[in-house]
């Protein structure tokens, strides 16, 4: 319990008392300032630690993103390669059927010399292989067109970021980081964003 402060009893305050009161006030303000500075220092330290933690998490996230992008590209590539193999096999079967049932009977009818016949068959087989290789390459070219896959991934990220209508500083940092990881140029990223903004 505070001691009773006999304050109003004094009608007049001597200059010396006034000076002492002001000195006490200054001292309290000085202490308050020191406390405020200590609080600010403590908060700055916490912010610094939080920033470091955030930066570490961001780096980890970038690595994970990179791994994810790479895995997705590989998966897509494997899927398309499987399709390419199936189509190539189909082409080979068609060519085999044509060769076996359309070309070979004609050759056997027209070429009496058995050596020449064998040579002709080998020649046909020789033609089949490059055809298969060309078809396979054409399909693989589609497979290796990862740019469109990466653009689509970046577009998905943009869609998530724009979900609430605005892009925060944190989202912008993540987008920039993802753009670099996906190997997209700034121009392409800007075009994609402009396209998205136009549609929303």
């Amino acid at each position: 319990m505070a001691k009773k402060a006999k304050l109003n009893a004094k009608n007049t305050v001597s200059p010396e008392e006034k000076i002492n009161r002001l000195k006490r006030k200054i001292e309290r303000e000085r202490k308050a300032r020191a406390t405020a500075e200590a609080v600010i220092e403590e908060q700055s330290r916490r912010i610094h630690i939080a920033n470091e933690e955030l930066s570490r998490s961001n780096t980890e996230m970038e690595l994970k993103n990179e791994e994810l992008a790479s895995t997705m590209t590989k998966l897509t590539s494997v899927e398309l390669q499987r399709k390419a193999t199936t189509i190539t096999l189909g082409v080979a079967v068609v060519l085999f059927v044509i060769s076996e049932f359309a070309v070979e009977p004609v050759l056997e009818r027209e070429i009496a010399n058995s050596a020449a016949l064998v040579m002709s068959k080998i020649a046909i087989l020789g033609l089949l292989l490059p055809t298969e290789i060309i078809v396979s390459r054409l399909l693989e070219r589609q497979v290796t067109n990862v740019d469109s896959i990466n653009e689509e991934m970046y577009l998905n990220l943009l869609l998530s970021a724009y979900e609430d209508g605005i892009i925060t500083d944190m989202e912008r940092t993540i987008l920039d980081s993802s753009r670099r990881q996906l190997g997209l140029s700034k121009r392409v990223a800007q075009e994609l964003e402009a396209k998205l903004q136009a549609t929303t």
Partner: peptide, 14 residues
């Protein structure tokens, strides 16, 4: 109440 009162209550309180 004035600075004397504010100073007084602070000084008289522990």
């Amino acid at each position: 109440f004035g600075e004397d009162v504010s100073d007084g209550i602070i000084e008289s309180s522990d």
